[in-house]
């Protein structure tokens, strides 16, 4: 079984993703836009069904297919596979949190986070934006940069609910 940080199997897909979708609205909301330099959040992970910005947000945290990691200054993306969590009967959320900590992200956007994953992410200093679902990864990032996603101070699912 995987220890921490073996989840980079997807590799760097190096996309300069969807400049139209993101930058158009970003300019409109510039006054409220969250700049990476202000928030201290430069690398943002989004739980995703696939590696592209057009893929949908996977609402599950621990059992998410993977994470699209966005550098908010350059808008470059990488994909981190979450296979190490899929093989665990229990503790997927903790494993996923480890994977994100090793990927060096400062925040994650997802649908639901259970209590153990929440504790683990918080200990690693990773902020959590919950209730992001039914949108593409690009749209989730846009929602974040325009200030529409707030960070949670409590988990929104009971343990093991995302199996």
């Amino acid at each position: 079984m995987g220890g921490g940080g073996r989840g980079m199997g997807g590799g760097n897909r190096g996309m300069t993703a969807q400049p139209d979708a993101v930058s158009g609205t970003a300019q409109a909301g510039q006054a409220r836009q969250r700049a990476a330099t202000d928030t201290g959040i430069r690398k943002l992970a989004v739980t995703s069904e696939g590696p592209a910005m057009t893929d949908r947000v996977d609402p599950r945290f621990g059992r998410a297919a993977g994470f699209v990691v966005v550098d908010l200054e350059t808008m470059e993306t990488t994909y981190v596979d979450n296979g190490a969590s899929q093989v665990l009967a229990q503790g997927a959320g903790i494993q996923a949190a480890e994977t994100l900590a090793n990927a060096g992200v400062q925040a994650v956007l997802t649908g639901y986070v259970g209590p153990k994953a929440f504790t683990a992410l918080t200990a690693a200093g990773i902020r959590i934006g919950q209730d992001v679902e039914n949108v593409s990864v690009a749209e989730a990032v846009r929602l974040y940069t325009t200030g529409a996603v707030s960070f949670a101070d409590a988990p929104n699912k009971p343990a093991g609910a995302n199996k």
Partner: peptide
């Protein structure tokens, strides 16, 4: 640990007793 009952996150050692 194969059950994620003990883990290091950032600068913190975390124990999940129920795991």
């Amino acid at each position: 640990c194969q059950f994620k009952a003990i883990t290091v996150m950032g600068q913190t050692l975390l124990i999940f007793p129920e795991m």
